[in-house]
């Protein structure tokens, strides 16, 4: 799980080109949108693309997407839940 979260942070930084952010700057539970990292709705679409390209998980419903993309923690939990045990 820790490994996954670290990797996820790196992937988020790369995908969204967060040049001045380092993986350790992102708190597992911090909100990605609004206050926290200050991401917006286009970023949320890009993060869904990240999930699809890197983890082969397709999120169809934008409303569901919003829940999954709350934080790195919620994303990691979602990815784990979708991967074969």
């Amino acid at each position: 799980m820790e490994e996954l979260k670290k990797k996820l942070k790196e992937q988020i930084i790369e995908a969204l080109n967060l040049q001045d952010t380092k993986p350790e700057d992102i708190d597992d539970n911090a909100a990605l949108f609004g206050e926290g990292l200050g991401l917006d709705s286009i970023d949320s679409l890009e993060l869904m693309v990240l999930l699809e390209r890197q983890y082969h998980i397709k999120v169809e419903d934008p409303r569901e997407g919003r829940k999954i993309l709350q934080s790195v923690q919620s994303m990691a939990e979602f990815i784990q839940s979708k991967q074969p045990a």
Partner: peptide, 13 residues
């Protein structure tokens, strides 16, 4: 490249 799936919207916008 991605065969019309998993596309980032940014270049389109």
């Amino acid at each position: 490249e991605y065969k019309e799936t998993a596309l980032n919207p940014t270049p389109f916008i």
